[in-house]
């Protein structure tokens, strides 16, 4: 599903965020990406949905070759890769319903189908009753659930989550994890960058530890492995 081979990323300011990354993630896997701040986790994650472009190497996501791909193709990649962020990134002027529907309008689905599917994913994240509210009227956990709903509404094969529980209290974090776990069980590949050791240690999945732009540990059912 996701394949990286000898990937290098050097920023114009001279910082090397990927220093020969190679990894293979199969369809349906759940992968944690851990590591100290500034180790290259974010860059690793961002390269998967082409927010960052690798300087050298091979990156393949599904049928997309992210190195040779032209900028014009990026939107089409993103329709297959759902992304969830620490700060939710919901459109503030759209209601819950409209935020989720937007991702489907973009692919020009017909309105009836949009309505059906949006209510379906809202049901999945348990927020069907907040459909008319605006993001600012929701709690952090609720906003994150909406952002997950938006990320999966087009049934992507990969869901990228960049510190999805970073701004949430422990209880809410577990709610979010349960939703992600459910999505994974339905067959979606999940790649999640996190600092939350408790989650990694309790909800066991494959762990990729990134340090200095390299994968230093790749362990199925591994521990978080850092302090704190």
């Amino acid at each position: 599903m996701i394949e990286m081979l000898n990937v290098y990323k050097k920023y114009p300011n001279g910082i090397t965020a990927a220093n020969g990354l190679s990894v293979r993630i199969e369809q349906g896997e759940f992968v944690y990406v851990v590591g100290p701040s500034g180790a290259g986790k974010s860059t690793f994650i961002k390269m998967i949905y082409r927010e960052e472009r690798a300087s050298k190497g091979t990156i393949k996501v599904g049928d997309f070759d992210l190195i040779t791909m032209r900028d014009k193709q990026v939107p089409y990649l993103r329709r297959h890769v759902g992304v969830v962020f620490q700060d939710y990134k919901l459109l503030p002027r759209l209601t819950v319903y409209e935020n989720i529907a937007y991702a489907m309008e973009v692919v020009e689905k017909n309105p009836r189908m949009i309505k059906k599917r949006v209510l379906e994913v809202l049901d999945l994240v348990g927020l069907k009753h907040k459909v008319r509210m605006f993001p600012t009227e929701l709690s952090g956990g609720e906003q994150q659930r909406i952002s997950i709903a938006r990320a999966i509404v087009n049934m992507p094969r990969v869901l990228i989550a960049d510190e999805p529980t970073g701004n949430l209290d422990p209880d809410t974090s577990w709610e979010i994890m349960n939703i992600l776990d459910e999505i994974n069980r339905q067959g979606t590949t999940i790649v999640m960058a996190t600092h939350n050791s408790q989650i990694v240690n309790v909800m066991k999945h494959r762990v990729l530890a990134v340090e200095n732009g390299r994968i230093v540990r790749d362990e199925l059912g591994g521990d978080y492995g850092y302090e704190g």
Partner: peptide, 10 residues
């Protein structure tokens, strides 16, 4: 930026 992230074309 968000619109681009969910796959909207320019």
């Amino acid at each position: 930026e968000i619109m681009k992230l969910v796959g909207a074309t320019n």
